[in-house]
Design a binder for these strands. Sequence first.
DNA 1: CATGTGACCTCAAGCTGCTGGAGGGTCAAG
DNA 2: CTTGACCCTCCAGCAGCTTGAGGTCACATG
Lengths: 137, 137
Amino acid sequence: MLTIGDLSRRTGVKIPTIRYYEQMGLLAPPERSEGNQRRYTPEERDRLAFIKHARDLGLKIEAIRELIELSGHPNRQCVDADRIAAEQLQAVRDKINRLRRLERELARIATGCEGEQIKDCYVFRALASHDLCDDEH
Amino acid sequence: MLTIGDLSRRTGVKIPTIRYYEQMGLLAPPERSEGNQRRYTPEERDRLAFIKHARDLGLKIEAIRELIELSGHPNRQCVDADRIAAEQLQAVRDKINRLRRLERELARIATGCEGEQIKDCYVFRALASHDLCDDEH
DNA sequence: CATGTGACCTCAAGCTGCTGGAGGGTCAAG
DNA sequence: CTTGACCCTCCAGCAGCTTGAGGTCACATG
């Protein structure tokens, strides 16, 4: 049986976050000690690791809740799990594309400045209008 | 003189957001009509456009506040503005790199699933442990 | 057995950057 | 003068935590 502190150290999830996940219904309320402290089983540790992994991959709490719900029906087809992963992949790809556009513009802005005075600074001129941008946004 | 609605339409910033920026000190409290409604000058519209552009580029409110403060000292050197832009560029690049790793892993997870039953689904196996990952994260 | 200290408990508020609603006042056209 | 679009303030809510206050528990040491 693990205390919440043990669990935190082993999964890298902070203690308040563990309690938060419990409150959000991602983790079932665990057993308690005589003195009302949480005690976790190795299975619960695995589940938290699953949650953390999914969060690190950017899945929303709601999506994780869905996955957990699905995992309670091991004999159903897994199209839904597939869909969740694919949606997340698409979201990540979209985000990368948006960030790449930002990167281009920022690189231009940041290198356009050459230590002059603020009133002439390229950073300000670039931010003040879109005329200097390569594309719309 | 522009009403808040005009300003909103011209800049693409929603009305409550404009009021929020005022509250956060990014926009100075504008003049008011006899009936206490906000009236904006073209200069204030330019400033809001600047803020929006910076936000679109992902700059935090705090960074924008710093830039605005700097723009009040047009004769100082612009190294700080340069630094803010460079930091933001670095942050964006870091984010892109992290997302690319996610993309790789998600692509693998999403394509590893081939419509089997949940108990065998690759999505779950991949999320349950890091053993199937290509790199640490 | 007392005591110290570190880990734990609950509850509530705070964070960022908005967004939306309630309940009311204002403005300009007709 | 009325109508309807617009505006006002204040307050609550979103995600996903994080932090703090004020108190209890577990366990090692004296």
